[in-house]
Amino acid sequence: MSAGFDAIPFNGSPILWNNRHRTTRPDISFYHWHQCCELLLVFGGSGTVVINNQTYPIREGKLFVFQPFEIHKVYAKATDDLPYDRTVVHLNHVHIEPYLRLFPKRQELFDRLCYSRDMERAFELGEHFEDVRQCMEDYERFAHDDRGATQEEITVFLLRLLSSLEKIIPETRSHSPVQRRSEEYSERIMGWIEANYMENDILNKLADELHLSRSYISRLFKKETGSNLSEYLTAKRIKVAAHLLESTTTPVENIAHQIGFQNVSHFISCFKKTYRLTPLRYRIKVKTTDHS
């Protein structure tokens, strides 16, 4: 489990497909970003998605498109009565772009979705939800075998998906190339934290790295993400702690210091606030689940 920059392991494949998945426990809310384009199709649930400091509701029939290196956050309020039901797809957009060269209108729409700074990327599918759902389900049948990795099947999937989206996305009148969005300061900040989250005195070191004042860095991050920098740093550390609790036998106290907490009690309090369990009980639960 990673946080901040969340690298997607394509391993040479143009697409990483996560089958339709339903959960009844709340997702952990965390700002993160990938090196690729991500699609999130919601079949059921409630909660919020944050893109570009704008908040959108999670509900059936919503499709979200997250651009490469774009900060976003998904928080689902899943319960037994209202599970969070979705499919997530990661697209290696650089690898896929040549597949669409024979279909200029679809390629232009794909480019806008992946790169345009002004493109809406939270869609109410409405009457077109069934078309998109069927498109997803048809590809999912062989997404994990050799056929699903072929250029032909990926191209067919994308053409069907883009044809459905074309019906709800206004056609651009501009003939100029897509204006790709520039890197935000917050992306640079998160990239630095990704490599240095375990350090002490983070804000001063970050200010030295970016040649900006502490207060200005904090304001920039809040403006661009809607989140406090300290909140982001704590979330990063807690996510790393969860991974260490799941994958190692390192004592809780050692993990706390390893990820940058000076006070073990504070670490336990932050962890419990996020996962609703103490670190020790979280480890026991995960180990029990793995062996059940």
Rank of each mutant, 00 (worst) to 15 (best):
Gly4His: 00
His21Gln: 12
Arg25Phe: 11
Ile28Asn: 03
Tyr31Leu: 15
Cys36Gly: 04
Glu38Lys: 10
Leu39Thr: 10
Gln54Asp: 08
Gln67Ala: 11
Lys73Asn: 15
Ala78Ser: 07
Pro83Gly: 10
Tyr84Asp: 01
Val88Cys: 09
Ile96Glu: 03
Leu100Ala: 14
Leu109Cys: 09
Phe110Asn: 06
Cys114His: 06
Tyr115His: 11
Arg117Asn: 10
Arg121Tyr: 02
Ala122Glu: 08
Phe123Trp: 10
Glu140Asp: 15
Phe142Pro: 02
Arg147Trp: 13
Arg147Thr: 15
Thr150Trp: 09
Glu152Ile: 14
Leu158Phe: 08
Leu162Tyr: 03
Leu165Lys: 08
Ile169Asn: 01
Glu184Ser: 15
Tyr185Val: 13
Met190Trp: 00
Gly191Arg: 09
Asn204Arg: 08
Tyr216Leu: 12
Arg219Tyr: 10
Leu220Asn: 02
Lys223Glu: 13
Ser230Phe: 04
Tyr232Gly: 05
Thr234His: 01
Thr234Arg: 03
Thr234Tyr: 00
Ile238Ser: 00
Ile238Leu: 06
Lys239Ile: 13
Ala242Lys: 05
Thr248Ile: 12
Pro251Ala: 08
Glu253Phe: 01
Gly260Ile: 01
Asn263Pro: 02
Ser265Val: 06
Ser269Cys: 07
Ser269Glu: 14
Phe271His: 01
Phe271Leu: 02
Arg276Thr: 13
Leu280Thr: 14
Arg281Cys: 06
Arg281Met: 13
Arg281Gln: 14
Val286Arg: 12
Ser292Phe: 11
